[in-house]
Design a binder for these strands. Structure first.
Length: 799
RNA sequence: GGGCAAGUGGUGGAAUGGCAUACACGACAGACUUAAAAUCUGUUGGCCGCAAGGUCGUGAGGGUCCGACUCCCUCCUUGCCCACCA
């Protein structure tokens, strides 16, 4: 007999909705648990990645509910963003209509999976009731100098008339029209995330329950590096060029210095020199290349001599000043000291242009003395040579000594540099949060007063996708009076990057209807922090970093009293088919909806958890799905053959299973939890089960297959929902074994096994072991050197 | 170039210092059936052996240990992230 999953799943989904089974409200009597999965972009269809992410979350949520926690498990939609604009153009509709249609479709699919969300808390970032608070947050940041406008160089597509993110530049061309991408200086809005760099780095130490990998990625992205800023005086010009290095131990080998082509001193250094016109040509050529092209090219490093010389302050040696494309204005001081003997890039550049070299660190592995014989730079550790008073010191020690000595002499300064840049949030797009700023010819940049929020997106913007931001073409949006002096003014037409929206949504879920602020402090104080956050590894840097930044900002505003939003983080692996990521372009997509139709949501949930642990990649397998379906049917059939009283051996298996499954659920090891449930089921098939044992099996299965379990629960005569049944507890008495199987090894190889009473003494055990007949060929006539005993488990005899 | 993760049967995976391959898929066999499907019950790492049993075996090589899939070192392969980062 097969269970009728179509009927059962529909029935229970309706029942849960009707009884608001997942409704969460403050309850001081219970311990709270805030479980959150990264909310989706509403494309209209869920894919297997969503199914996996949200199934993991739902099982955890239902398990915590059964354990007696007050669980908050909300869902919403990250609804702003470019795909909606493209789809609207393609389908000749408005982003607004298209997005809302997609949200409804997506919600239906999520409901069909049986996920236990408190839908009363649903939010969409494209609703003005949400993005009003984006604008409020922006203004708070603006008041504190954390939101500011500055000119910068960005990728620009001349045909689409818009800026492009680095990710949107493919092989130097626009991802949409393939035009060659240019560099352009534009005034853009930035958030000063760099003000929080120390805290963002230090607080990583608190995040013990985050994956090591994510912590590393965040730390690398913030990129703290300690070194020394060294001042090179330019001969004649009377100027100073600061350079930054992490290898101050190599300073005596700095035989030239190199500036980025954009360096502000370059023009002065080349002026009147014979090299001037060549240098200008080179700078012009580099400036036309986009950043992306410049960074990705693995062609040889190009550069020119400026005609000027600078003085190495440690030995007063004159060194030539060059310009090269491999030095970046964005990092450090935009200038480097070049040590060709101990830096591979400098080595290649020096070889190419015939620049001088000098060894300053040696060990036995490196060529001694002869720089001409050097085939590549020596970047390892060794002893200082050619380094004045520091000769003979290990370079690791010299690094510290030289830095201190330079500071004393005033020729260098110990400094910390960071890789983290401020966050550019301006987008010349329509479908995003309008930046609440007005430009007044009299007063300059004027923030929109709080009482005028939200600045709503005009619904009737002309929509073609070309020729810059559509907002600029809506007169009644752009033309406003200055809030300060009433002079005719112009509204900002850029919108915010969508990462802004998702940087605080977890706080909004605590009080989604709140009218007087982004969130209600009382609610946030109860529900936050998020106890368990689940999502894809692709958000390991940006989204998580921005969310941590916003949380620290709210703390500084005094609105919350914690500085990290997510206590535990789980990053789930991707779903693959035939070893490749599922994607439209590969044409290897498996549609969850079709699988639900064929086997039901419970089977899909079961399979996706059983096939692999949550963190690793999961190989899709249609036959595995059938296997999972078979297992549910196998459990279903148990109800036909229930006995009065369970076999004692079955009760032992049951209690062991309860212990194992509880531990596995807590540790998110769903695949082995399911394996244990299968073993219990197999044991039931051997001895037959009583109603009590069967009930507990169903409860343990309920987080994974909720519809299935509810139905069986009802069939067994229960009136209340299974999710109010409480989690079963393992009886410690049933876990104690009377007899143990002891493994006997000789020289580390298993040679025999014996069964003994659990409470046997060590001496007695030794006696029995040595009398074991199976061991005779292995130990007879050989002196026993050692007798190792691992209690309850194993002995090893060394002969 | 840097960082991280992974590598175990035909397949997905289990075991994180103590019986390698739990659980499942697949395959093979048996029961039921006129037959098939479904279901139930077995067998299923390689080699030697009729068997009892032996022996090899967790990417490769070395090390620590009574004992290593597990810890350490070197290397190979694959995947992900970052990257002319000074």
């Amino acid at each position: 007999m097969h269970y009728d999953f179509k009927k059962i799943e529909k029935k229970w989904q309706n029942a849960w909705q009707k009884h608001k089974a997942a409704r969460a409200r403050i309850n001081p009597a219970k311990e709270k648990f805030y479980l959150l999965e990264m909310f989706p972009y509403p494309s209209g269809k869920i894919h297997m990645g969503h199914v996996r992410n949200y199934t993991i979350g739902d099982v955890a949520s239902r398990f915590k509910t059964l354990e007696g926690y007050n669980v908050l498990h909300p869902m919403g939609f990250d609804a702003f963003g470019q795909p909606a604009e493209n789809a609207a153009i393609k389908n000749k509709t408005k982003p607004d209509n298209w997005t809302h249609k997609c949200i409804r479709q997506m919600q239906d699919e999520l409901k069909k999976m049986g996920f236990s969300y408190d839908w009363e808390r649903e939010i969409s970032t494209c609703d003005s009731s949400y993005y009003k608070w984006n604008q409020w947050i922006f203004l708070k940041m603006f008041e504190r100098g954390l939101a500011y406008k500055k000119a910068s160089t960005v990728n620009w597509c001349p045909s689409c008339q818009t800026t492009l993110a680095n990710e949107e530049v493919i092989d130097g061309g626009c991802w949409r029209c393939h035009s060659k991408v240019e560099q352009k200086d534009l005034e853009q809005w930035y958030l000063k995330i760099t003000d929080y760099k120390e805290r963002l780095l230090e607080d990583l130490e608190q995040l013990n329950d985050w994956p090591e990998r994510v912590l590393n990625m965040q730390a690398n992205w913030i990129g703290k590096s300690q070194g020394v800023e060294i001042y090179f005086k330019v001969k004649a010009a009377g100027k100073v060029i600061p350079v930054f290095t992490t290898r101050v131990d190599t300073i005596f080998g700095a035989t030239y210095i190199v500036l980025a082509p954009e360096h502000p001193l370059v023009k002065e250094l080349i002026k009147g020199k014979s090299q001037e016109s060549g240098a200008l040509k080179f700078i012009e050529k580099v400036s036309r290349e986009s950043k992306v092209v410049r960074a990705s090219s693995d062609v040889k490093k190009e550069g020119v001599f400026t005609g000027s010389f600078a003085v190495n302050p440690v030995n007063n040696e004159e060194v030539p000043v060059w310009i090269a494309d491999y030095v970046l204005m964005e990092y450090g001081t935009g200038a480097i000291m070049a040590v060709p003997t101990h830096d591979q890039r400098d080595f290649l550049f020096a070889k190419e242009h015939g620049l001088p070299m000098r060894m300053v660190i040696q060990n036995t592995a490196a060529v001694e003395g002869n720089v001409e014989d050097l085939k590549e730079a020596f970047e390892g550790d060794g002893l200082q040579v050619n380094s004045g008073e520091f000769d003979g010191l290990p370079n690791v020690e010299a690094k510290v000594k030289i830095a201190e000595w330079m500071e004393e002499k005033g020729i260098g300064k110990i400094q910390t540099h960071w890789r983290l840049r401020d966050w550019l949030i301006s987008r010349q797009r329509y479908w995003g949060t309008p930046i609440p700023i007005i430009y007044c010819p009299e007063c300059g940049i004027v923030p929109v007063p709080h009482k005028d929020l939200p600045v709503e997106l005009p619904k009737d913007a002309p929509f073609t996708g070309e020729g810059g931001s559509p907002l600029g073409k809506v007169k009644k949006f752009v033309e406003v009076k200055c809030p300060k002096c009433r002079a005719p003014s112009r509204r900002e037409t850029d919108t915010m990057a969508t990462f802004f929206d998702s940087s605080w949504y977890f706080l909004r879920f605590c009080s989604p209807e709140f009218k007087n602020g982004p969130f209600e402090q009382k609610e946030a104080a109860y529900w936050m922090r998020v106890d368990q956050y689940i999502g894809g590894i692709e958000h390991a840097i940006l989204h998580l970093l921005y969310s941590r930044f916003f949380t620290k900002f709210f703390k500084d505003l005094g609105m919350i009293d914690f500085s990290e939003p997510f206590k535990r983080l789980l990053t789930q692996g991707m779903v693959l088919k035939e070893g490749e990521v599922m994607s439209k372009s590969r044409g290897n997509i498996v549609d969850p909806d079709i699988m639900i139709g064929k086997y039901g949501a419970d089977t899909l949930r079961l399979f996706i958890l059983f096939a692999a642990p949550p963190e690793t990649e999961l190989e899709w397998d249609d036959r595995g799905l059938e296997g999972s379906h078979k297992f549910l049917n196998r459990v279903w059939r148990i109800q036909d053959n229930l006995k009065e009283k369970a076999d004692p051996s079955l009760l032992r298996v049951l209690h062991k299973t309860i212990k194992k499954v509880s531990e596995d659920y807590r540790g998110f090891k769903f695949n082995t939890a399911i394996a244990s449930l299968m073993e219990l089921t197999n044991a039931i098939y051997q001895t037959g089960a009583d109603k009590e044992t069967f009930s507990r099996l169903i409860i343990m299965l309920s987080p994974i297959a909720p519809h299935f379990a509810e139905e069986l629960w009802k069939v067994l005569g229960n009136k209340e929902s299974i999710f109010k049944a409480g989690w079963p507890e393992a009886d410690p008495k049933m876990l104690v074994e009377d007899n143990l199987i002891i493994i006997i090894q000789v020289n580390g190889k298993v040679r025999s096994k014996i069964t003994v009473a659990a409470d046997i003494s060590e001496d007695k055990l030794k006696e029995i072991v040595l009398a074991d007949k199976g061991l005779i060929p292995w130990i007879q006539g050989k002196p026993i050197k050692k007798f190792i005993l691992v209690p309850q488990k194993l002995v090893n005899i060394v002969v």
